[in-house]
Simulated scan of single mutants.
Amino acid sequence: MGFSQGLSGLSAAAKALDVVGNNIANSQTVGFKAGSVSFADIFAGSMGMGVQVAGVSQNFGQGGPATGGSALDMMISGNGFFRMVDEAGSVFYGRNGQFEQNENGFIVNKTNGMFLTGYQATDGVINPGAQVGPIRIPKDDMPPAASTKGSVTGNLKSDDKIIPATPVFDPEDADTYNYVSEVTATDSLGNKHAIKVYYVHTGEGKWTVHAQDSTSPGAVNDGFVRTDLEFGPDGKLKDPKSLAIVGSPYNGSAALNLNLDLNITQNASDTQVMLGEIDGQAPGKFNNYQVSDTGEVIAIYSNGKRQTVAQVVLADFANAGGLEQQGNNLWAETVQSGQPFLGTSGMGSFGNIEGGMLESSNVNLGDEMVNMIVYQRNYQSNSQTIKTQSEVLQTLVNLR
């Protein structure tokens, strides 16, 4: 019996050393998860027959953060796996967030070119109910869009000089208004239009606002529109006000038609009015891309605009320990793992995706060195039992 027990111990210790060696070898592998050996005894009736390796499990604990070297590098902080497919459509899962763009614009992992999957955006909008598939970053130019609505914010000085009704407002005469601000809008072809907005203090708590598309004035009243503002004792507008600014066609574009909300207060601070927000854009060339902390892939254009083109999907399992290792830091679904459930960064039990970061291996080299010493001693001890059993048998053979 001693030989079989010792041999089983040698085999188990050797397999344990294989696992330790694999952990140490992958201590610098991005997204690698350390393995650990489970042992079980072997019995025949009441007689112990030795030991066996019951299984090798993986520690799916979080690895430390590391700075990525690519705009498409990403890290999952918390639960979840990146979902990838190969050319044949087979699905794999992994934690290695080293991705790049292939020649066709698809996001693929660097180790074996598998396609990262997620939701593709339509006109910058993600539809979570859309079909999950390979993510592609389009490099098309951003087309122009006309500005149709915007707003200005700021403050008008309450004790600014009051300008009488005469002389009549004249944009060429600075004595007929207190302040002028400018808003930049775009037309249907992406041409920029300077919208001039003039503020006239007509009485306590009362102002008149004149506005014009100075680039391409409309035909009526030289394109000027006006509205009257009245502020309460709290410095807020008594009624919401807006300006409907209409220009003329410009360089072949459609006429600008912009509704500008006046989100203005009045108090003793100096007058300062600025653009709050405005839609529309000039045409833009594709410049670059990045991954946000919500897992959205964002294209960056030369006109300063950014547009979401896709969102990365994460997968998780009821029993991640039941996944089958496929090499290259990949796992595949099994009956033991259960079917995957999908989600996005930060949703429910899913972790957060951090763009520009990578998850380091979770191998603890100190623990592995200690384990290696323990398994080595275990191997030596089992070999010693075989040696002792051999000596006992030799003694029996030598009996006369």
Rank of each mutant, 00 (worst) to 15 (best):
P167I: 05
T111L: 08
G129V: 02
D73C: 02
Y93E: 01
N155D: 11
T153F: 10
I126N: 11
G154K: 07
F99A: 09
Q62V: 11
I135Q: 03
I137F: 07
T166Y: 07
K149E: 10
P164Q: 01
T153S: 10
N109R: 15
V85Y: 00
N104M: 01
K139W: 00
R95C: 06
D175E: 11
A44R: 09
P164L: 01
N155C: 07
V91G: 00
D160F: 11
N109Q: 14
N155Q: 09
Q120R: 06
N59R: 05
F92Q: 04
D175Q: 05
D173V: 05
K161A: 13
K157T: 08
E100H: 13
M84W: 00
A54M: 00
F92A: 03
E100A: 14
M49Q: 15
M74N: 11
T153C: 01
N79C: 00
E172L: 06
G97F: 07
V53E: 00
S151E: 07
A88V: 13
T111C: 00
A174W: 05
D175A: 06
G45F: 07
P128W: 06
T148G: 05
L156Q: 09
G94N: 09
D170K: 12
D170N: 13
G69W: 01
L116T: 06
Q62F: 06
F169H: 12
V51Q: 11
M74R: 03
D159I: 02
M75L: 02
I76P: 08
V56N: 03
D140L: 01
G89C: 10
A71N: 10
P138N: 09
S158A: 15
F43K: 11
A145S: 13
P171Y: 14
N178D: 10
G94A: 08
T117Q: 12
G113A: 15
F43V: 09
G45D: 12
F81D: 00
P167N: 05
K149T: 12
T153P: 10
Y119W: 12
D160H: 14
A174D: 13
Q52E: 09
E172V: 04
T176F: 09
I162A: 06
G113H: 14
N96A: 15
A44H: 14
Y93F: 15
T117Y: 06
V108F: 15
T122K: 13
A66V: 06
N96V: 01
K161P: 14
S77Y: 03
M84L: 15
T111P: 06
V53I: 08
F43H: 10
T117D: 02
G64Y: 11
I42L: 12
Y119Q: 04
T166Q: 14
P143Q: 14
P134D: 02
Q52K: 15
I126L: 07
M75W: 01
S77T: 10
D73M: 04
A44C: 03
M142W: 02
Q58S: 10
G118W: 01
F82K: 05
V91P: 03
P144G: 08
P138G: 04
A66N: 09
Y177E: 03
P164F: 05
V125W: 06
V85A: 01
A66L: 03
